[in-house]
Design a protein around this nucleic acid. Structure first.
Lengths: 323, 323
DNA sequence: TTGTAAGCGTTATCAG
DNA sequence: CTGATAACGCTTACAA
């Protein structure tokens, strides 16, 4: 049993369906008493215009497609929060699908979302290097490290993050530095900024590589500590890996920040819960999500829009300090 | 300019739109060569049936509404993951909205989702004590601690979690116990199970109250430690609070688990990253999400469905062990 | 196996 | 200010 439709309301209030429609759209052009009659009937029948019908004729869905690698990663959750808040104000909703960090699922997710005729889309950390399919007039906005040829992007200035870390270590008088990276462009940009700032100060640094996991952080730190006995500061490409680094240092009885200072990246919720609380390069995830949504909304409205670059910020906590 | 529609495909492949439709639905009833011709044209034009049209005529949207208090809470992220995986197999998509832990926003979110004519809905941790609005034939499934009168629920047996914690402490020979709770039904159920098992062993326990935040965990633990000098085991209603408890113990130089054992609740990702790694009562969030989706799908299909209760599990890590 | 045609619930155009 | 009526893109009897 379908719920009441526009016809029913029209019939019972003695007007045409066109008038009912008008009442729910540009109420201005309908006489107050007619309007009220319709509204009353509508309320009595529990009628609400169906967006299905409306969207069909308007060719819009008031939906924004959102593709996320993995919903349970808190940083992405923050981005989604930013997107949602922006959309909420404009009456749009969010269709969510996961890419599971995998190009094939990402494509599947995109198709799934497109079938619902979304007006626009945001994809976080795209996995494929070709553009996602999009019908004419629909655009994907990417929250990703720069990707060749993608027109609409919201990104973080990763190199600036590296510079922030380097400067902080220098300021604290650290001289025996290391970087623990991971595969991918983001990490290499962070490293690039870090290295640049150090070379300006005439310093070199040691390197190790992980994969953003906690365990890999522990292993990378162990490697580093075996090779170079002198090490008083480590910059880590992600907070989770940094957790592993803290553990490695603790196991070896090295005091943080007394003997070794540590700076992570992202400033995930986790950072402030570790012991010692982790100094980290903050990625403004909520704001980045909001910016992506704004960008998409502009595009949907047919306006021009430009990519945005966000600057990271150093959040000082217990894992850094004077030697 | 709209993208290619069914008409275009039909015209270019020299068949009627009905045939094109059939190709995309019950392909069985159309001749292989016709089918292929259509498929080729469709591919060439990048045609995909619009769910707007399809859903309009079928009276379904293939959408499931999802209301979450807060997307950036990892446990909810896991639930969403479970929901999504189940839906994905059945070709449904997920419309996401946040309730921001607030009854009013929850209602707004529900209405927003309802406007898109979702076929079903899942609401995590509902804030309102009245039922959410729902058109005839549509049902909300709740992932929440029991709420009077809600018909379709997926819940965790919180009391069983409390019993698990109590038994583990007893097994380890701990005798000076405490519970750190928080407001709300979930915490009191956990406490109830904990207390029941202890009283069976003829033991009493101390209590303190927090609000699930890290800081409140530290404060509650401090309270406890000031009042009772003998304390060798603490059961905490949430992992985040447990992080605060570990910090308090560390500050006082108490060894964990040597002097005090700690068990948290939820087994959030955080638990295994703390130092020492936190033993916790695992809430099978992914499975609970999946179960809620199954439940909703049954309801959508017009079948009967029953609420489900999940059992928690003890995950042993470093924060418990022999004294 | 295929085509014709009647909807699905709405908005928008055009008369009145 | 209001009413017919033609779309919108698709599915589904019913006929052929």
């Amino acid at each position: 049993m379908r719920s009441a439709g526009i016809r029913e309301v029209a019939r019972l209030s003695g007007v045409s369906i066109a008038t009912v429609s008008r009442v729910f759209n540009d109420a201005a052009s309908v006489r107050p008493d007619t309007q009220q009659r319709v509204l009353e009937q509508a309320a009595a029948l529990g009628y609400e215009p169906s967006s299905l019908g409306r969207n069909l004729v308007r060719g819009r869905s008031e939906l924004l497609g959102l593709i996320v690698p993995n919903v349970s990663f808190p940083l992405y959750g923050q981005m989604i929060g930013g997107i949602e808040d922006v959309l909420g104000h404009r009456g749009m909703s969010m269709l969510l699908a996961s890419s599971h960090d995998d190009a094939v699922s990402e494509l599947t997710a995109a198709q799934k979302v497109l079938r619902h005729a979304v007006d626009g889309g945001v994809v976080i950390n795209t996995q494929s290097d070709v553009a996602l399919p999009a019908p004419r007039g629909m655009n994907w906005v990417h929250i990703s490290p720069e990707h060749s040829g993608l027109p609409y992007r919201v990104e973080l200035d990763n190199a600036a993050g590296g510079r922030l870390a380097a400067r902080e270590f220098l300021r604290l008088g650290r001289r025996h530095l290391a970087y623990i990276g991971a595969p991918g462009r983001e990490s290499s940009e962070r490293q690039h900024g870090f290295a640049g700032e150090l070379s300006r100060a005439g310093l070199d640094y040691r390197r190790a590589q992980g994969d953003y996991s906690e365990l890999s952080g522990t292993q990378a730190a162990d490697d580093l500590l075996e090779k170079s006995s002198v090490l008083d500061a480590v910059f880590v490409a992600g907070d989770l890996m940094a957790a592993g680094v803290l553990r490695a240092l603790h196991m070896r009885g090295l005091r943080v920040p007394g003997e070794v200072a540590v700076i992570g990246f992202d400033d995930a919720a986790l950072a402030s819960l570790l012991y010692p609380r982790l100094t980290s390069i903050r990625q403004p995830a909520y704001a980045m999500g909001a910016a992506a949504a704004e960008l998409s909304l502009r595009l949907i409205g047919g306006h021009s829009a430009e990519s945005v670059v966000f600057s990271p910020e150093l959040v000082r906590r217990e894992s850094t300090g004077p030697p």
